[in-house]
Amino acid sequence: MTRRKRRAAQALVTGREPKNPVVIQARGADSLPARLLGVALAGTGAAHFTAPRAFDGLTAKAFPRGTRQWTYRNGATELLLGLAIVYHRTRVLGSVGLFAYTAWLGGQLARRR
């Protein structure tokens, strides 16, 4: 601990206000489950491009016309949302996007049934 930090800490212990307060920027612990979710989602999105046939059956239920094109679009969306969730700064935006995307896909499936 530096001398300045020790003096500031000692001043706080004795109830005085430190001469030169030390501001410590505390950042919360990063969420491992959120990162894992983001990596899994991004991996699934990338898989839409490497093995699109595996996703065509499910995609055809929501998008009967232009299925392969929609498979690629959904893959790109999942890849971007997954990467947004991986990074702490964009996690909230990615989570809101994932919620909206899931609701939109559910609506598409419900409409086609």
Score class of each variant (00 low, 15 high):
79 L>F: 14
55 F>R: 05
62 A>R: 02
65 R>G: 08
71 T>R: 01
83 L>N: 04
83 L>E: 01
64 P>D: 08
82 G>L: 10
48 H>K: 04
68 R>N: 14
71 T>E: 08
69 Q>W: 09
68 R>E: 12
76 A>E: 14
79 L>N: 03
63 F>S: 09
53 R>G: 15
80 L>H: 06
55 F>H: 11
50 T>H: 05
64 P>E: 02
73 R>V: 11
55 F>E: 05
72 Y>R: 03
42 A>I: 00
77 T>D: 15
63 F>G: 09
54 A>S: 13
64 P>I: 03
68 R>A: 10
49 F>V: 03
74 N>V: 09
75 G>L: 05
48 H>T: 02
43 G>K: 02
63 F>A: 05
55 F>D: 02
74 N>D: 15
77 T>C: 15
59 T>P: 01
73 R>P: 00
73 R>L: 14
73 R>E: 07
65 R>S: 12
64 P>L: 11
57 G>D: 04
60 A>F: 07
69 Q>E: 15
47 A>F: 05
44 T>Y: 11
80 L>R: 14
46 A>T: 00
72 Y>G: 01
43 G>I: 02
62 A>E: 13
49 F>Y: 09
66 G>K: 03
47 A>S: 00
60 A>Y: 01
70 W>M: 14
64 P>A: 06
81 L>K: 13
81 L>W: 09
50 T>F: 06
57 G>N: 01
57 G>W: 08
76 A>P: 08
83 L>T: 10
65 R>L: 13
49 F>G: 13
78 E>C: 11
72 Y>F: 06
56 D>F: 08
62 A>L: 10
70 W>N: 15
75 G>W: 03
58 L>R: 10
54 A>K: 09
63 F>C: 05
79 L>P: 01
65 R>W: 12
54 A>R: 06
50 T>V: 12
77 T>E: 15
52 P>K: 07
74 N>F: 06
81 L>R: 07
59 T>K: 01
71 T>H: 03
68 R>S: 02
84 A>G: 06
51 A>E: 10
71 T>K: 00
62 A>W: 06
83 L>D: 07
84 A>F: 12
82 G>E: 10
58 L>W: 08
75 G>A: 08
49 F>D: 00
58 L>E: 06
60 A>G: 07
55 F>Q: 09
57 G>L: 01
62 A>N: 09
53 R>M: 12
46 A>E: 02
54 A>F: 14
81 L>F: 05
43 G>C: 08
76 A>Y: 10
74 N>W: 09
71 T>V: 10
62 A>I: 12
81 L>E: 06
79 L>G: 07
69 Q>L: 12
70 W>P: 12
77 T>Y: 13
76 A>N: 12
78 E>V: 01
45 G>R: 00
47 A>I: 07
67 T>S: 13
50 T>A: 05
75 G>E: 09
68 R>I: 02
77 T>M: 15
54 A>P: 03
79 L>D: 08
75 G>K: 01
81 L>Q: 11
47 A>K: 01
80 L>D: 11
49 F>N: 00
71 T>F: 02
57 G>R: 14
81 L>G: 12
76 A>C: 04
66 G>Q: 02
82 G>H: 10
60 A>R: 13
75 G>P: 06
44 T>V: 03
48 H>A: 03
